[in-house]
Amino acid sequence: MTGPAATPGTNAGSAAEAPVMLEVEHLVVEFRSGKERVQAVSDISFEVRTGETLGLVGESGCGKTTTGRALVQVQPATSGSVRFQGQDLGRLSKRELRKTRTRIQMIFQDPISSLNPRRRIRDIVAEPLAIWGTGSAEERAAQVRSMLESVGIDPDTAGDRRPQEFSGGQCQRISIARALMAKPSMLICDEPVSALDVSVQAQILNLLADLKAAFGLTMVFIAHDLAVVKNVSDRVAVMYLGKLVELADSDDLYRSPAHPYTEALMASIPEPDPEHVSTHEPLTGELPSPLNPPSGCRFRTRCPYVQDRCASEEPPLREVSPGHQVACHFPLRQLSPVPERPAATTV
C-alpha cells in the first residue's frame, strides 16, 4: 500500500499546498472476541490537510466509524500511527493526550445518545470550559450564549432545558456547540445527519459548512451516503471491509470513479428526479463477514467485473491520475498520467 508519505505533494486541488494536519499511517484496529480476531480497519493510510474536508464513505461494517474513533484515540489502534500536527497521538502520555485531543472533536450519529439526558443544555455546552477551569462563571455563560446562538439555538429558552425536550436536529446543533467550545482545529463528524430527515439534514450540513468557514476548521466527514459526503467534502476516501479502495478529489471521484465499488455506491443514491437514469448497476449481495474476508481484493465477491487475478492478489492503492488513488487491478479509469490537473474544487 502506498502511504501518503510516499507520494508527497501529488494531491490535486486547492488544499494540496496546505500543511498536513492529520496523518494516518498503516492504521490497523482489531477487535477480539474470545479467541477470534476481527480486523475492523486493516492497514489504511491517508492524510488530512489543514482547512480541507475529507469524506470517508462506505457501508455499515466497513470500518469507517472505527477509523473515526481511532483518530481521537477513543479506540486504541492495534498498530500504525495517527499523527496530529506532527505528534504521534498513540505515543503521548495519558496527560498529554488528554490535553492534545481536545483539539480534535467528534460529532456522533445518534443525537440523543450524544447528550447526557440528566444535564441542562447550558451545562452540557459549558462542559469543555468547566473541565479545564477556563474563565469565570460569567465569562463561561457569555461564551455558551454566543456559541448556542451561532448554532441556531436560542440560549434564553434552551439553556435550562434537558436534551429530551429537543428534536434530533436541535440535539445535533447542541452537540456541535459543545464540540466547538473546546476550540478544536479538527472536527470528526461520524454520520452526523443519517438519523435526521432530509430537511433537517440540509440544515445541519449548511450549519457545518458555515461553522467550518467561521472557525477555520479542518473536517473528517464520515457517512454512508456518497451524495451527502460529496456535497461537503473536498476529497473523498471510499472504504470497503476495512480497506481504503479509492481516494480522490470529490468532483473527480464523481466524474470518473475508478473503483467498481465507488460506481456501485453512486448507483444506490436515490436521486430526487424521476427522469434520472442511473448508468451504473446497483450493488447486490451483502458485505462479507470481516471475520473471514475474501482473499485478494475484498470486493471481488460482489464485483461485476471480477477476474481470476482478483482472488489471488490483493490490489495495492496506486495513482490513476494525480491525487486520485485506487486499489483495483482493473480500474474503470485508465492508468495514465493526466496532463492537465483536474478542475480545482471549491468549498
Binding site: 477513543v74 481536545t102 467528534m106 445518545s113 473541565i131 459543545r178 473546546a182
Partner: peptide, 10 residues
C-alpha cells in the same frame, strides 16, 4: 456517545 464526547473534551 456523551461519555466518549466527555473523554475527547479532556
Amino acid at each position: 456517545d456523551f461519555v466518549v464526547a466527555a473523554r475527547t473534551l479532556g
